[in-house]
């Protein structure tokens, strides 16, 4: 039976093969958990009308410069919030894999650390794409005019995907460092909520208190919102949107690389 062992060994797996296999694992899981999928989609549907009517009168405040409709102003904010609230949990799957033996199995296989990180991040990108489409269609159905047409919506989508990638990378890095669910939940809450509210998601920067306006300027969540909002406006400043997307992309790559590095710290604890 030595024949079985002398068979030509498989060539080394490419990054693409490993990445695809890891992504498939997550996508399949999504299909098998209809409850998770519908709750995720539901939050996309609920927040826009909810915050839209809650803060409706913001549009009447003197100095509000977000176009005539608050809903139109709010749409990119809700997209960014959804990205944060979904991708903030990306590290959870890693914790589950560590608690079972799946992580050990993956780490003793030739799987590249980059593929183990890029797969789940790509899965988050798929999720936020679906959610963004729902929110934009809903906004449109509720009477919002996206004056720049499909190009603007596309920029918003790209901003949302990059933000989700950035946050997922952060969440995965944290998961590999703290290694237990409780700490990851606490850390996620600590990051996600302030990032949402220290931005122009609900209110134009001019109306924010001074220090919050300053913080918002350096908040990547605000970059995604501003880029999306700019692109959806009547007269988009593509350059302003462009550099924010670039900065988000750089951050996403940086946290992804950080997550791949964090495996070393994790393995030192084994």
């Amino acid at each position: 039976m030595t024949a079985e062992l002398t068979a030509t060994p498989a060539p080394e797996a490419s990054f693409g093969t490993q990445f695809g296999a890891v992504l498939m694992r997550h996508l399949r899981l999504l299909g098998r958990q209809p409850a998770y999928l519908s709750i995720s989609l539901m939050q996309a549907v609920i927040w826009l009308p909810l915050f839209g009517s809650l803060f409706r009168h913001v549009a009447d405040v003197p100095g509000f410069d977000g176009g005539r409709s608050y809903l139109g102003y709010l749409t990119p904010g809700v997209v960014a919030m959804t990205a944060l609230f979904t991708s903030g949990w990306a590290g959870m799957g890693f914790i589950q894999d560590m608690e079972g033996g799946v992580m050990d199995r993956l780490l003793t296989s030739p799987a590249r650390r980059g593929a183990l990180v890029a797969g789940p991040i790509a899965y988050q990108a798929v999720m936020i794409t679906i959610q963004t489409v729902i929110i934009v269609v809903l906004g449109w159905a509720l009477g919002t005019h996206f004056r720049s047409g499909p190009a603007g919506a596309l920029v918003l989508l790209v901003a949302a995907v990059l933000l989700a990638a950035f946050i997922s990378g952060l969440s995965i890095t944290l998961a590999l460092l703290v290694r237990n669910e409780e700490s990851l939940i606490a850390a996620s809450q600590f990051i996600v909520l302030p990032l949402t509210f220290l931005s122009s998601a609900m209110m134009p920067r001019d109306l924010l208190p001074g220090w919050i306006a300053t913080v918002a300027r350096y908040n990547p969540v605000d970059w995604a919102i501003t880029a999306g909002r700019e692109a959806l406006g009547a007269d988009p400043d593509w350059t302003a949107a462009g550099w924010r997307l670039g900065a988000l992309a750089a951050l996403a790559v940086a946290t992804g690389a950080l997550a791949a590095r964090a495996f070393r710290t994790y393995q030192r604890s084994l």
């Binding site: 060539p11 080394e12 797996a13 490993q18 296999a21 498939m24 694992r25 296989s109």
Partner: peptide, 11 residues
């Protein structure tokens, strides 16, 4: 099993 095969380059 298929996941493990792909990670090893067997497709």
């Amino acid at each position: 099993l298929v996941l493990q095969a792909y990670l090893h380059g067997l497709t």
